[in-house]
Design a binder for these strands. Sequence first.
DNA 1: GTCTATACAACGATAGAC
DNA 2: GTCTATCGTTGTATAGAC
Lengths: 187, 187
Amino acid sequence: MSQTTDTRRRLVAAAQELFAARGVGATSPRQVLAASGVGQGSLYHHFPTKHDLTLAAVGATVDDALTSTLRVLAADAPVVERVVAYLERPRDALAGCKVGRLTSDQAVMDDAEVRTVVGLYFTRLVDAVARVVAESGLPVDDARDRAHAAVAVIQGGYVLARATGDPEAMRSAVRGFVTLLRSETAR
Amino acid sequence: MSQTTDTRRRLVAAAQELFAARGVGATSPRQVLAASGVGQGSLYHHFPTKHDLTLAAVGATVDDALTSTLRVLAADAPVVERVVAYLERPRDALAGCKVGRLTSDQAVMDDAEVRTVVGLYFTRLVDAVARVVAESGLPVDDARDRAHAAVAVIQGGYVLARATGDPEAMRSAVRGFVTLLRSETAR
DNA sequence: GTCTATACAACGATAGAC
DNA sequence: GTCTATCGTTGTATAGAC
């Protein structure tokens, strides 16, 4: 593995962490430098502008998140339980969703390319959940509505937990939704 | 009405608009000046620091939002329909929630006083929805879970709509949740 | 209370030596 | 590919006249 590649990775990894903790707009290239331990010249060699660094870091974060979520949804279990497994997955509620938080980050929304990457994450996530729900035999449109609601409960759970400073808010929202989901199935 | 009060109001109104459109961290005192038409000296006379201006503007936005939502929840209708009325309320989904978006705004989360105001908004909102749900006779804990889920669906709906650039994502999430809510009631 | 002018740090980015 | 030094701009805030 070349040194080039290694430096690049350290920069991207440092950017991913800082973006997750403080957002893109509130993170400066200088902070990424300090966190990664590389020099200023190196950063601008690998990533000429902040846009380039942001695209690489957000792209990596989106890939990681999608991969691990799709694995949970593909488990060998009844349809409802696979959706419930997604919903009840352990999460750092107070940290917020690494991807979802970017939708109110002006530095992201002002950058068409990065915004597209964030949009694709949610499109694919909702599609994956909808496919699972549709296995139950529910009409496709209804399955998509359920999928949107499920993903929204998680994203909103993050907002509630962060706003109140209480991770229990996320768990309460999930419990409320799962109860409704199961009560329907049990009918 | 004194000129002092009027200048103050124009500053707060301009700050509210800019904060709603671009967030607190991404809005500078200079932009507030330009939008309000007042001079630099005036701003710093009424609000010595950005913190002071932020607290006033966010406080006003929270008050407005809470007041109008509580009115919807107090309508004269069956319990489930009052919750549905809150859920189906017309919203500018692509703009995001003026309050919810602040939970991923670093300038807000770094300011303990402002953060508290945002937290209280959601605490009160969830409490209000939970009280309505509890009128149905559901145990209090279950009512609170439903309320958290309902508010989360809306907040998550904003995230989905903004991420995908499609307001239909919010409507789909709401439809999915309302269907589950009504199916339970109809049992 | 409001104005103009200014201070000082941090921002994103570039220059040019090695 | 990486370094140190520096650029021009904007951020938040202050000074002092009116």
